[in-house]
Design a protein around this nucleic acid. Structure first.
Lengths: 214, 214
DNA sequence: CTGCCATGCATTGGATCCAATTTCCACCCC
DNA sequence: GGGGTGGAAATTGGATCCAATGCATGGCAG
């Protein structure tokens, strides 16, 4: 099953991550199948995968849709990130290559050059996930990635309404993190990372309108 | 798709959790389909789900098998538990009913009455997962459950070779946890829980033979 | 005019069928 | 006797087909 199923799953992940399929929107099997020139079967298998990943909700005979998350749910998911990502970083750090660190520099330089929201989201995501990339524990990296995937929609909404003002904080925190990475100081890096995530969470909590809650 | 698929997935989870399908063992689609009186299609969809949950490994054209985990992988997964379960407990605790606490008493009494390994594994699992049951954050409970599911095989192997001697420690820690739960002291409960998980992890690390590593 | 019910259409769930790949074995050659 | 090659059986991957369920539209009655 795998080859077509993986293609479809990757396509759907990108579509949801890119905001082309919004929460609440229904995902029709036939539509996706035609878009990718496949039959419905790999689509159905991909939907099962994404359902297990939490990116899709599946009700019997009613089809698949992207789930809405409440502010509280996202809040807890950020708390999960605050717990897990320092661990992933600690596991990954010893195996990061100079090339990895150089790539981080490039990404951060690009972010600071001033990019649009969409590109910022992509670069920020790549920045963080790359710091975990050498971790080698599948269960850990996939769990972290899932948390990023499922909350991306709300991060985008938040970025759009908060404007570029808070980029300064992000940049400062990223630079602090990179400095700790360069020194190989795992404790320091973990602390800055946790703070970075926690601050973001607290800011998100001040914007209930992102979740349609006021 | 869901009804048959869910049935198959649940069957496979139980089979793997119960040790009836061991790591490295291949899972043939046709076999499962016949066992459950279904066609291969729901089986394939269920396998995709379990693959996304990490309970199954799927290689294109080579079929599905239960993955082996290294000692290091399990070690990190226990670290994940140590980070996540206190969070799950904190989210769940305010909503635990007196009935829930009573059920915990029952379980713990049964454990202390002296049960066989298989029953201990089931009761211990129910004990902990029940303390998180009121949490209400799907992504959190499912992540924690996944960690339990994927490491069950090694917990069983460990219990079988370590004998019932260390039950005393488990019982003491469970009682401490229950006391904190009864008092509604989330900080205390989280601390005891983290210690409980960490101690188990450290003990596991002293038994590389569980993982076929010496 | 409004609300309910029924019928028809759209969509999903499940089974069967066919093609492609792998795996296992036997046989042959070195 | 051991290792490699060929082929057949087993197994998986993908498509098509049919049944069942849900949804929407329209008609009918109050």
């Amino acid at each position: 099953m795998t080859v077509a199923t993986q293609r479809v799953a990757e396509h759907l992940r990108r579509a949801i991550l890119g905001g082309h399929i919004a929460p609440g929107e229904r995902v029709r099997q036939e539509d996706i199948a035609q878009q990718l020139g496949a039959s419905r079967l790999p689509v159905r298998e991909a939907l099962q995968m994404l359902a297990a990943e939490g990116m899709i909700e599946h009700e019997p005979n009613k089809g698949a849709r992207v789930p809405w998350l409440s502010m509280h749910e996202v809040d807890v998911m950020y708390k999960m990130r605050e717990q897990l990502e320092p661990l992933a970083l600690a596991e990954s750090m010893p195996f990061l290559t100079p090339g990895d660190l150089l790539r981080l520099e490039e990404i951060q330089d690009e972010i600071e050059a001033g990019v649009e929201v969409e590109q910022f989201l992509a670069l920020d995501r790549e920045f963080h996930l790359r710091t975990y990339s050498a971790c080698g524990i599948d269960h850990l990296t996939s769990t972290v990635t899932r948390l990023w995937n499922s909350t991306q929609y709300y991060r985008r909404a938040f970025m759009h309404l908060s404007g570029p003002s808070r980029r300064w904080v992000v940049n400062a925190e990223h630079r602090l993190l990179m400095d700790a990475l360069g020194r190989g100081d795992e404790v320091d890096a973990g602390r800055f990372l946790a703070g970075h995530i926690r601050r973001t969470r607290i800011e998100l909590n001040r914007h209930p309108e992102v979740f349609g809650e006021d």
